[in-house]
Design a protein around this nucleic acid. Structure first.
Lengths: 209, 209
DNA sequence: ATTAACTTGTGAATAATTTCACAAAGTCCG
DNA sequence: CGGACTTTGTGAAATTATTCACAAGTTAAT
């Protein structure tokens, strides 16, 4: 086992492997090689093995990895062998989509509270979850033991929401607003900027001609 | 100027700078330094300058960059100085959110066609855009000169949709399904896997205690 | 039992990316 | 004008990440 610092990119790939293993397990597959595991995502087998080696020796020479065993270990490493409570702020179109996105609950992320500050939305319900005023955020975070927050409000309000979240004790903020946020140390941040992917495309597309 | 291959990560940062410059321009700022540009995104000033140096010398020693000029150049480099027509496949919650996401149109990405295969959705309209059957994809891509496709269908149908898109002549596929796709060479692919960011969080959160 | 074919795990080599360090140029102010 | 201060652009160094190469364990077939 390798005790060096684990690259951030390796963690992301671990998620990919875990996803794939879940599929293989559903298909009833018993064994899988590092080659198979990397193939569909175009990750070289040696990269797969390196990534896994940061955490232990899970394979068996000659036959590969046990789908069940490796899946279990990866879920454990990634911390998705348990449920995480998530607060969603922003009950617009994007919030709605995230709320009903099946991929979250499938990995154990439960959106247990939804907030908005528009009077027209507060106290409405989504599938039994009442939309709360942002004023209630702090109390609810404590009561429901929420550790992750999702910011799905327009850029103009995003920083304010993030401030509230961190103050309330949320430890990780996933931000969908096209704006970088400042969060205090001790609070993690990740940004999903949907337009950036498209801009990447346009960069390469422009070069084609 | 540096003629080495431009790192993919540099292109992504260019988008961040461009976004920031648009904000500064709106605020009426005239000049900006590499330090200012990097600061809010925690990018070292030297990284900012390196990134820009791949494409030319845009600054002036002592005073920095002209907000207007650099913004213009970056938009040109990124290919967002023009409009791009985009096809969206999948008229569910996620599709709906992407369709009305203001960040796309703001950067010149216009969703000019929406497709779904559910009979209950086809021929309905979203703000004047008729939801079409997937069978019409190929024809519409040609007619409307569409070069980018967004896959917002469940994982089970994603590969099929991507195949159709590439066959129809779409050059870049943005995939939101939690599944890696195979696309032919000559077609670009990017994946936005919303759950991966959360899994990243849970990895670090699990280590906190 | 022997051989050929696989497959893992890992140190070493390579490649890619970021950061450092600093010369050169521009600004500001008395 | 002169000197202190900024700021860019860029080789060189350092760091980080990926790929190679291969020993060693495993499987399967004859």
């Amino acid at each position: 086992m390798n005790f060096k610092k684990v690259p951030l990119t390796a963690i992301r790939r671990l998620s990919i492997y875990a996803r794939m293993l879940a599929g293989l397990e559903a298909d009833g597959k018993q064994q899988v090689s590092s080659r198979d595991l990397g193939e569909t995502a175009s990750i070289p087998s040696t990269q797969v093995r390196k990534d896994l080696a940061y955490f232990g020796q899970f394979g068996k020479r000659g036959s590969g990895y046990s789908v069940k065993e490796l899946g279990f270990r990866l879920r454990k490493i990634l911390g998705i062998d348990r449920a995480w409570n998530v607060a969603l702020v922003g009950a617009g179109n994007l919030g709605r989509a995230l709320f009903s996105y099946p991929g979250f609950s499938k990995q154990g992320f439960r959106i247990v509270a939804v907030f908005d500050n528009s009077p027209g939305k507060v106290n409405k319900s989504w599938k039994g979850t009442r939309i709360q005023s942002i004023k209630e955020l702090s109390k609810t975070v404590r009561e429901k033991n929420i550790s992750i927050g999702i910011v799905a409000v327009p850029a103009s309000g995003a920083q304010e929401v993030a401030d509230e979240m961190c103050k309330a004790g949320i430890k990780a903020v996933l931000n969908f607003a096209p704006k970088r946020l400042k969060v205090p140390t001790g609070c993690m941040q990740a940004n999903v900027d949907l337009a950036i992917e498209l801009e990447n495309f346009s960069y390469y597309l422009s070069k084609l001609r």
